[in-house]
Design a protein around this nucleic acid. Sequence first.
DNA 1: TCATAAGCGAGACGGTACGTCGTGTCTTACG
DNA 2: CGTAAGACACGACGTACCGTCTCGCTTATGA
Lengths: 214, 214, 214, 214
Amino acid sequence: MSVAPLRGGQARMDELLTTTLDVLKETGYERLTIDEVVSRVHASKATVYRRWPSKSALVVAAFVHAVSHLPAEYDTGSLRGDLLAGMDDLLNEMERLADVMAGLIDEKRRNEELATALREGFLDTRRQVAAGAFARARERGEIAPDADVEMLWQIAPALVMFRWLMMGESVPREEGHRLVDEVVLPLARAGRPVSAPATPPPPPPPRRRAPPSS
Amino acid sequence: MSVAPLRGGQARMDELLTTTLDVLKETGYERLTIDEVVSRVHASKATVYRRWPSKSALVVAAFVHAVSHLPAEYDTGSLRGDLLAGMDDLLNEMERLADVMAGLIDEKRRNEELATALREGFLDTRRQVAAGAFARARERGEIAPDADVEMLWQIAPALVMFRWLMMGESVPREEGHRLVDEVVLPLARAGRPVSAPATPPPPPPPRRRAPPSS
Amino acid sequence: MSVAPLRGGQARMDELLTTTLDVLKETGYERLTIDEVVSRVHASKATVYRRWPSKSALVVAAFVHAVSHLPAEYDTGSLRGDLLAGMDDLLNEMERLADVMAGLIDEKRRNEELATALREGFLDTRRQVAAGAFARARERGEIAPDADVEMLWQIAPALVMFRWLMMGESVPREEGHRLVDEVVLPLARAGRPVSAPATPPPPPPPRRRAPPSS
Amino acid sequence: MSVAPLRGGQARMDELLTTTLDVLKETGYERLTIDEVVSRVHASKATVYRRWPSKSALVVAAFVHAVSHLPAEYDTGSLRGDLLAGMDDLLNEMERLADVMAGLIDEKRRNEELATALREGFLDTRRQVAAGAFARARERGEIAPDADVEMLWQIAPALVMFRWLMMGESVPREEGHRLVDEVVLPLARAGRPVSAPATPPPPPPPRRRAPPSS
DNA sequence: TCATAAGCGAGACGGTACGTCGTGTCTTACG
DNA sequence: CGTAAGACACGACGTACCGTCTCGCTTATGA
């Protein structure tokens, strides 16, 4: 769906992409209009369609553009410092991109490139930040050797995005830090629980039907 | 934007709403068309617009319809049993509604009724299931008295929805159970950490700019 | 290229067609815009495209509509009276349609329906008017029995259209009448010349080339 | 709108003009595309627009180029010979230009230069050929002194163009010669009719309305 | 001899119109 | 009266062409 940038006009491309992102934030994917975007930068529709074959491709490119920076790396000397730094970065990114992401989650189901952009441009960054921090912490003996890093890295983005996208609330810095101190760090230090309780899992509950059929 | 059901035709309404949900799952909010819905049930557009004033109202109603059942309540006698039962219910609901939710997250930003439906019909159910379970567990002394219930209940839905909507993966039952056993239960039992480390939080990291401007 | 008229809205169709004809007269085929037409009658493009598949089809229909009346028939009792009446009718029609025709002559080359409309709706009317007049005149003995009717009927429209379309002048009534009196009537009365001069036709002249190649 | 030939590249100009004429014949004015023309001669749009300021100017120039040769003059010694020679020339020109003319009649209404080109490059040639022939014939006493030359010269082009452009038929040489022998020559020899019949012209017929309103 | 200029191809660009499609309103005819 | 059918005004989409423009490349001349 993406298109090799034209020879000239790199500046024009950036302008189009950042403007697209602005409009996206303001109005959401559905209400975004190509005409609105081009009129803001005094361009013409052809200039857009010469680069991207459709509205959705334009929007995807704008998102890719927005998340295409080098993954952050923090080495503050302590696990807590690293995680707090990563959390601050996450919160900044969400502030910038939460509205845009909301408009793209549906599109992502049908657009492999967008899915890749989200994964590689955003999620992998979170994973790498956390993975690096945990690796250094393990060498320093700060955490249990069997800590489940693959689960741990997801906790912060999952909860932050849940709050932004599902609950519709922003997440203040202190909340994010509490999340690190009261959830991530304790779990990392404790490692996996000694043994999963032997009680067999209960039978699956009866499936619900959509309408309150009773 | 809300529903004014006509006297007759309750069955017709259900048919329209469930069909709307089907189309929504298949094609997403943006690509859903009223004509597609009505042609599937051999109805006419007027029949839809007599009941709901817009496409978004129809879709909201379909979602409300889908989540409008009594909140589940599980009392299995143990916290773990309750949480696992709640997790199974959550996983079932996600299986049924993940695609639909993806299509509505953007619309929710502009549609208060949809936001309410999501909150009351879906999230509050999760909260109540967990809150009840934790309350009983505290009475039984199974968990620390200062366990942060408001944070704890969010962990399961946040991580499950993160996996479904962000990572694009479904969550198998065993994974859900591991989440209960290795994250929720340990945190509940431990309660809040003795004291937040006294180290002052690091200064906020420099904000990133969108393009790799270096 | 034509389309069965929709059930309702015959009035709307007429309105669209006459407005199309107006715009056509004012601006010519090339500069005519669907948006201009629909905005004049407060219609929408879809209303046009529901009936006619393209701009050219609309314009053709407007022309067909404009020439779709019963062929005139004049029986004034004398050949001269009949021809003058036919001439007046021709001049009226040209006044009404000359600008339109100018815009359609090119399109006619590619549009069989338009060609048919021009032939049957306009030219055949001329032929029939003249043919009837000459037939009655021959019975009355007013003209030579061997008068070449197939050539005679063409003279009036050919010269009038030549003046309108090629020379860009309108033809006043007196000029038209002079044409009848000084060209058509004399030729009709004289019949074919006694014998074609026996001189063999000269050899065809050398073909010219486009550029003044000398 | 007129031509300002660049210093070099006369050959290029000819190439462009003749190619334009070709495309014009094939597709008509409206469908002619600058891109089509330049791609056929491996030129670029700038090369066209450096010479002619618009599509219509290019097309006009192509037509002017096509009709810009010295007016023919035939002096065969007899009126009939002159007229037949002129007719052959006319038929040749129509063969070459009928399609092009069809595409330009509409444009001519709005383009004074094109109107001039048609008049001076094509029509005046016909007029001069005929006028010369008739002048010599009058001196020789071959025609009536009061023959209406201004009307006579138009008959041949009017009828030939009528056949080509309105009826959509080509005109074979014999038909053209018949036209000379049976129409033009008899009228020229007879001169104006002795007296216009005294019958007053009939009242103008009722104007027709566009739709068959009865 | 080489530099300065000019025409050239290529094609991006701002516009404008096209023809299509979906929304939400409305009318018509049927049961 | 509710409904199926579908016409309608509106407005966005994605395409095509016009006329302008900038870019290098080539060529052709003049210092």
